[in-house]
């Protein structure tokens, strides 16, 4: 598995951990009143910030782990090419951008569907909080699908057509 795929897996793990933490918080620790939209919005904003911080930590962590691995291998083998491996693994090139574009398109389709479903739910008389959760949930699911699509394209290959 390529470094790019491993980076995406770390990123996905951070995203899943955030969603899991949010679900746990809402189900066990505190559930704001259904009508209190501002409270729900603040809660979601807090968890979005936590999610971003976790993503940054995950990326730093994988870079540090990979650097340690390459350093150890360099010391064991005495070869100087490991530093070059590191330099040529953590840059973004045209293939990464193409994969990112294709994966984001799939993710947006999911998030867009979520918005549509939320509007239908509102039209059917569902509470606003439910619609808000459908939108946020679809966004999270879209990110998950985007990550999985990226891994798939990285491993299987991608055509420019």
């Amino acid at each position: 598995m390529s470094i790019s795929s491993k980076r995406i897996i770390f990123s996905l793990a951070a995203g899943i951990a955030t969603v899991f933490a949010y679900t746990l918080y809402v189900c066990i620790v505190s559930t704001p009143a259904t009508e209190d939209i501002a409270h729900w919005a603040i809660l979601m904003l807090i968890f979005i910030i936590i999610g971003v911080v976790l993503q940054v930590i995950a990326q730093i962590l994988i870079y540090v782990l990979f650097s340690i691995k390459e350093e150890v291998e360099e010391n064991v083998s005495g070869s100087k090419r490991h530093k070059l491996f590191l330099q040529t693994s953590f840059i973004e090139d045209e293939r990464d951008r193409l994969i990112s574009l294709k994966a984001i398109r799939i993710g947006y389709a999911c998030a867009g569907t979520g918005l549509f479903v939320a509007l239908v739910a509102l039209a059917c008389g569902a509470p606003f909080v439910a619609a808000l959760h459908i939108i946020v949930g679809a966004g999270a699911l879209g990110s998950l699908i985007e990550g999985c699509a990226s891994i798939y394209f990285h491993e299987r290959g991608i055509s420019n057509g």
């Binding site: 470094i3 070059l84 491996f85 693994s89 840059i91 973004e92 293939r95 991608i158 055509s159 420019n160």
Partner: peptide, 26 residues
Amino acid sequence: TQAELAQKAGVTRQTIIALEAGKYLP
């Protein structure tokens, strides 16, 4: 090495690997 070529071309080693495997057209 693939890493040396990647550095000269300014891309990742994964891109060189994909090119050699015929999985990507540059």
